[in-house]
Design a protein around this nucleic acid. Structure first.
Lengths: 254, 254
DNA sequence: TAACGTTTATGGTCAGACCATTCGTAAGTT
DNA sequence: AACTTACGAATGGTCTGACCATAAACGTTA
């Protein structure tokens, strides 16, 4: 009778990968604030010694942490693993990867944006502080001045959405919206919409901005809906298929 | 004139990490559908030989891919790296990590849910198919029958939201909502709300369900708003602070 | 002071070894 | 024939020790 119990006692010595344990430990240290962004972790050789493992194991742990975007590796003297201030980037790439693997049509991403960004615009109209209004104005101005260059135009387009994201006060909205925007950008990357489309986009953005500027939340929300729908209508023809293999998105397509 | 050009020609031999290149190559193969979910990659030794690198390098690449959730490693004979069907899990953990690191209060997550889940409920009322209605009904029933156990109750609670997510037809909404839900779950993990609160939650869920069942989108949306606001009001007192200042992970203090 | 080697700490890569786990199969047993 | 056991092979997990490439700090020299 005792034999069965003994089996259990001797079994679970260690079933997990050592590099996972190391990654967890370091992640916890960062999460609990014991190591601040910008600071450097000990060198791989020192970590190996302190954790009592090999360098190979430490390196595998660092690859995980790097993939999560919480450390950044620099080489050479005074190099090493530096704790980063995590931004929405890794969230965005997670979402992009997921939607690509599942072959989700862009129209469905647009639908999701329609649930989020108009609310953000309304909130921005209420909460936006002067310096962020200023940033949005500058972004609109930048769009207006670079109608001839897709790359530069998009840069100011992004700047506008980022400023709007920060204006409305809730980082969760900001992160989600930026992730969705990156998915869109990825799907349309390398495409030139032409001057006319850029001008239409710029004017739609300007309408959103003006509503925010005068604190008119309802108008800002409506203008953002118009912007997103317009962008989808004008730009969808530029990608091969708005609804690849599997399922179909339903929006204002024809 | 040739000297300057030659400098450029001889410089960029290889500045990137080899394991990153390997990870990219494998990721592309999967993205392009050359390897299907469920299938196995060659063994580490074979990959090392084919890519012309060491096993250590291959392993670092696999740690990245594993962290992204696109492969899963099993050991032993017939083991190896298997391509997984990626779900919303890695997106959820990305978001959880980001919000924890930035010390975002749960109240702001709730605000974001308010912009998304009510819309989903409205859509579900329109699109939900019978078998998913059935799943939601079963989830409600499960909640009703397990009011005495937090763990089991939450399981059915999750089941309801998952069914709702699948019902409304847009995977993007589903992924985002599940990620937000996991953030909430993580923040409240290990807490027992008590029978009374669970009963209130169950009734709120039931109201959402009934509206969806009879195809009343407007009512479903309103009921979901009430559910989320109610949950926040009833359950917020259970966490130390709805807006933590700086320190992390404080639940059972003082 | 400025330019140029030198040193040194650190990550990047590799080869080779050994262990632990898991599965298939062959041998043995009932 | 059916079940059990023991063995072998494939595979991931881990370690050791070495060498290279890079980049910053240091010292030397003009």
């Amino acid at each position: 009778m005792g034999s069965k119990a003994n089996l259990r006692l001797f079994k679970p010595v260690r079933a997990v990968r050592l590099s996972d344990v190391v990654a967890d430990r370091i992640r916890q240290l960062i999460l609990q604030g014991h190591i601040e962004p910008g600071h450097r972790l000990p060198s791989e050789r020192q970590l190996a010694e302190r954790f009592g493992t090999s360098r190979a194991c430490i390196r595998e742990a660092l690859r995980q942490l790097e993939q999560q975007g919480i450390v950044e590796i620099r080489k050479g003297a005074r190099g090493g693993a530096f704790v980063t201030r995590v931004d929405g980037e890794s969230l965005a790439s997670s979402l992009t990867l997921l939607l690509k693997l599942r072959r989700i049509p862009i129209a469905q991403v647009t639908e999701a944006r329609l649930a989020i960004e108009p609310v953000m615009a309304r909130r921005a109209a209420q909460y936006a502080r002067p310096e962020l209004i200023e940033q949005m104005a500058a972004a609109i101005q930048g769009m207006k001045e670079h109608l001839d260059s897709e790359a530069e135009f998009e840069q100011y387009d992004d700047a506008f959405h980022h400023a709007l994201g920060r204006s409305q006060g809730n980082p969760v909205f900001e992160f989600l919206a930026m992730a969705l925007l990156e998915v869109i950008r990825d799907a349309f990357s390398g495409i030139d919409y032409g001057v006319d489309n850029r001008r239409r986009l710029m004017r739609s953005h300007a309408r959103v901005f003006k509503a925010i500027q005068r604190g008119d939340g309802v108008a800002a929300e409506r203008a953002m809906v118009a912007l997103i729908k317009g962008a989808n209508r004008w730009l969808a023809p530029f990608i091969a298929s708005s609804a690849p293999p599997a399922s179909g998105g339903n929006l204002g397509e024809d």
